[in-house]
Nucleic acid binder design. Sequence first.
DNA 1: GGTAAGTCTCAACTAGTAGTTGAAGGTCCC
DNA 2: GGGACCTTCAACTACTAGTTGAGACTTACC
Lengths: 220, 220
Amino acid sequence: MITTLREEFPELSVSKIRFLEGQGLIEPERSASGYRLFSPEDVQRIAFILREQRDNYLPLKVIKSRLASWERGDDPADVTPSGPPPESYFAASGLSMTPEELIKASGLSPRHLRELVDHGLLTPMELPEGKVVYRDDDLAIARAARRLIRQGLEGRHLRVIRLAADREVELLQQLVAPLLRHRNPDNRRRAAQILADSAHAGAQLGESIVRARIRRLLER
Amino acid sequence: MITTLREEFPELSVSKIRFLEGQGLIEPERSASGYRLFSPEDVQRIAFILREQRDNYLPLKVIKSRLASWERGDDPADVTPSGPPPESYFAASGLSMTPEELIKASGLSPRHLRELVDHGLLTPMELPEGKVVYRDDDLAIARAARRLIRQGLEGRHLRVIRLAADREVELLQQLVAPLLRHRNPDNRRRAAQILADSAHAGAQLGESIVRARIRRLLER
DNA sequence: GGTAAGTCTCAACTAGTAGTTGAAGGTCCC
DNA sequence: GGGACCTTCAACTACTAGTTGAGACTTACC
């Protein structure tokens, strides 16, 4: 049987392969005597299925439909909904934290927290009494920043990322400026939807480009 | 019972609430007589659970452990692995497509495809016979780009995103340059790991910043 | 040609997840 | 005091994701 796959998935059984075929997820060729013959593409496909199961806990039905829509070259918006759905994309949890709480929740050091504020990555709300309060946006930013800091990046590097994000926001802002000009709730909702989808697509685009570049870098 | 939740989740049953408590996902207060009392936070928590189930197909066990690590203020790397795991982050599927196939799979028009190539978002491999071939990186890029184009962005706007991505790659490259200087397989693997985590964190950071900015924009 | 190891189908079985249902009883509130 | 709600607890159900076993066939090797 396919031993290559067993490197990544040691618990892969023959019966599971048969089961996957029974569910219509794979369709290996057959030899004259009825044995299954797996092409490299079949192996890739099985690896994909197993990875989706293991890493994203997707039910086989969902994997199957994604494979199918991928094959049809379908609208990828339906294929990659791994993330919040548009309506909830900007849904704030109402969380608000003191600097101390943010430090605990993000794992940042006070020094790094200050750096992030200085470089404009974190934008706490200033309350009249002189206190400052962070929101859930800031927590997400702080956590991501901490991962990068741990790898050796510093405030000034993160600033580059912030500038890029700002430029992207300007871009998106232009897109919905006409809708936001008048304070009409319907237009506002429409704008939020466009922004949600575009922001998500923009993030995907950026990540895809980075990934492509890095892959080529590593291939050398 | 909680009717607010039924707006988003019409099929939510009382027995399901009790089941969730039985599984340890929620712990509502109790009145003196033993009735469950749901605070707004409880409602938020339940909504989160139901959303993870509905949108990401996560098993309750996984949701529970994510809630728990969120509560402990744990390493968010474990909390947000919605995406490929480090080892497979750069795993190519070996896919290669002709321009026509890419157009079909991405839904781009030939004109937009040309634009993306011109602006350096797509970088096909040129084969000796003069043919060009796209890879799976390019498909991901093309699909994300198409979502933005559909919202009204154009080639020159996407170029801005590409430049930002390039700058981010330069940043990350510096991070692993020492490891890649000598062709040692162990160092190479280590570099790949760092790049995978950092690229993912960088994408998260960028998206978080954009989201925060846009949210503030919409709040005005 | 024999035989061991592997494969085939098909049906039955199993383990786990995610709840639902029903019985017996307590609480709330008009 | 009665109807509508809530409580627990055990049993039951539906579905997913396989495993196991029987009986038959194939492949490889001596």
